[in-house]
Design a protein around this nucleic acid. Structure first.
Lengths: 159, 159
DNA sequence: GATGAAAATACGCATTG
DNA sequence: CAATGCGTATTTTCATC
């Protein structure tokens, strides 16, 4: 149980933007010694405040031209477990959430072209319990990040 | 103009999973010297195949308990520019895409609680051109990644 | 601050177009 | 023979103790 201070917040804010930032650079920014920054990073990771560090690739350059959101209605609960298992194994499915409202689940998918999209859709539709899907294809993306606003966190976070 | 080989793919696959992987570790994995790996990484970044490196934080631990997808109908084109400007400045909006189908845009948002959600929604609804919104709140997340499947890329990617 | 690890640099060699 | 890519050796930078 511990409280994050402004320095932790500053480190995290920076690591959200630059996940490969070196410890000495971070030390300059927060005006601390390198070992202190290292220790803070260790603790932040230990407390699982940091889920992971990832390189984000430019999907278009890899010929993944289609992004879509797919609403999936899954038959009540009985098939839910197997649905999730399938989802996890499908690399083109980047996200899967259960949601309130119409379709019981929303998937975010990335795929190469309309041919592969059609294949993916029919694969999804073949999964046990899948009753209906509705797709919204992304035309353009104006913003995409997983950054969390950390500006009023000093007072809030208890770990 | 250049072709990615299996070694580039292996490096990228690894960096997608571990964005802070050290160059000497990568060198071991792909059986190359450290300078060679560095040079490849430099080129991959230079070609903008890697968009960036980011620490992903555990939103729940920072009291961001609500994730939602919000469909927004924006008045045809005339207000579109200002809508995107607003979106970009709103830190709780993590994603904004224009899509085919019903609502013209889909937002993915993260916010602390129902109170802040309500505030965010009314802010969005106050933006010029916003005619209608529909929200789907995320109940649970089963998968969430931005990894791209890189298994058949050797033959495909031209840069 | 000292020690050790990791990365940047400089150079030569090999392969290829 | 110019260009590219790799490796070794060396220096410099970075991280741990």
């Amino acid at each position: 149980m511990h409280h994050l201070d402004e320095i932790d917040i500053a480190i995290l804010k920076h690591l959200q933007k630059n996940g490969r930032a070196q410890r000495n650079k971070l030390a300059k920014i927060v005006n601390l010694s390198v070992p202190s920054v290292s220790e803070r990073m260790r603790k932040l990771e230990e407390k699982k405040l940091i889920d992971g560090y990832h390189a984000v690739l430019n999907a278009q350059k890899f010929n993944f031209d289609i992004v879509a959101f797919i609403f999936v209605e899954v038959d009540n609960s009985s098939y839910h477990g197997s649905f999730v298992e399938k989802v996890v194994l499908e690399p083109e499915v980047q996200e899967c959430h259960s949601i309130t409202g119409d379709g019981s689940h929303i998937l975010k998918i990335t795929t190469e072209n309309t041919v592969s999209l059609e294949k993916l859709l029919s694969r999804i539709q073949s999964w046990e319990g899948v009753k209906k899907t509705r797709s919204n294809i992304v035309l353009s993306t104006f913003k995409q990040t997983r950054e969390i606003p950390l500006d009023h966190q000093e007072k809030a976070v208890e770990v």
